[in-house]
Amino acid sequence: MTTFPQLDAFRRGPGLIRLVGHRGARGVMPENTMEGFEFTLACGVTLLEFDVAITRDGVPVITHNHHLTRSVARDASGAWLQGEEPKLSALTWDELAQYDVGGLDGQSAYGQRFPDQAYLNGVRIPRLRDLCDLVAQPQHKDVHLMLEIKSDPERLQDATARAEIVAAVIAEVRSAGLTQRTLMHSFDWNLLAECARQAPEMPTSFLTQLPENDADVGEDEATQAGPEITADTYNTLPGLVAEAGGKLWCPYYLDVTADSVLRARELGLIVAVWTVNEPDDIDQMIDLGVDAIVTDYPGRVQRKLLDRGQDWLERG
């Protein structure tokens, strides 16, 4: 398949730069939760980025880290997790559903990054099926998914495990009838090759980050799943993504340049930069002419675009 209708939702146009809600709207709502996704959709944001991992019993769930994180998860008594953080792949779906992920521990380093995030109670890690069911409703027919499959660092080289994870994720998307509204998104280029093999109807989106930019506090490192990248080889990345069959290139916003955006565009790639939160940085990305801005604060990007006479949606 050479044409992908879902790409148009992520491509810029005259007076139009696309807006992607990162993990919903992490800056203001609990990340990767149904409450966060519903809020984001209510704000008129129709592109959702989120992370998927697999439980011990093979259920695709929406969460970023491979462990339940003590700065995010509370037990049945409402207490923050103590001691060793349970691994997602060691828990069944029923066990995982006992934890509350509706807020952040404000004393933790991760919690201090998002002081404006709402604190809710009784919020659970959703299954991929839950989000697909929401998006499949008629009122959300214009919503598209940037689905990032997380690579388990302990199983990076396990081709069988990789194929099983991809198959489980694809089955949920297909069951909901959302293949033409979904991108497969990852730092793991081997995993993306497996996605293209199993689901040629869904385009692949390649995440990259230069190693000198440290991983964010409180988050699992993901860049080790991809190819080795240096400042000297960075400008070759658009070409490598295109050669690998990618349709989107998703660089870390501090890495992107006018030249690299131009090169990507020459190769027919869509450029979606992550994760852009500060007003000056949002302005810079608009000036560079990227196709899409991935952000924890959708409202900030909306305001910037409107102030500059631009939009994030095609208005009928």
Score class of each variant (00 low, 15 high):
Leu306Thr: 12
Glu95Leu: 02
Ile293Gly: 12
Pro30Met: 04
Val166Glu: 00
Arg263Lys: 09
Ala53Ile: 09
Ala168Met: 08
Thr179Ala: 14
Glu243Ile: 11
Ser89Tyr: 07
Gly27Cys: 09
Glu148Asp: 13
Thr55Cys: 01
Ile54Thr: 05
Gly299Val: 04
Leu313His: 11
Thr233Gln: 06
Phe37Arg: 00
Ala161Glu: 14
Gly78Ser: 06
Glu219Leu: 13
Gly218Arg: 03
Met202Cys: 03
Gln180Tyr: 07
Leu191Arg: 10
Ile125Gly: 01
Gly106Thr: 15
Leu156Asp: 13
Phe206Ile: 01
Cys250Ile: 10
Glu49Ser: 07
Ala231Val: 05
Ile62Trp: 00
Arg197Lys: 08
Glu35Phe: 07
Gln180Ile: 00
Val59Ala: 07
Asp283Lys: 10
Ala163Glu: 10
Gln107Arg: 14
Arg181Gly: 04
Leu81Arg: 02
Leu313Ile: 15
Glu228Cys: 05
Pro5Thr: 11
Ala222Asp: 12
Phe50Cys: 05
Val271Phe: 10
Leu237Asp: 06
Val271Gly: 02
Tyr110Val: 13
Asp259Trp: 11
Pro279Asp: 01
Ala167Lys: 10
Lys141Ser: 15
Arg124Gln: 13
Met146Cys: 13
Ile229Arg: 01
Ser186Leu: 06
Gly103Lys: 14
Leu104Val: 08
Gly289Ala: 09
Asp255Cys: 08
Tyr119Gln: 14
Leu19Cys: 07
Val166Gln: 02
Thr275Arg: 03
Gly111Arg: 04
Gly245Asn: 02
Pro227Phe: 01
Glu31Ala: 09
Arg263Cys: 07
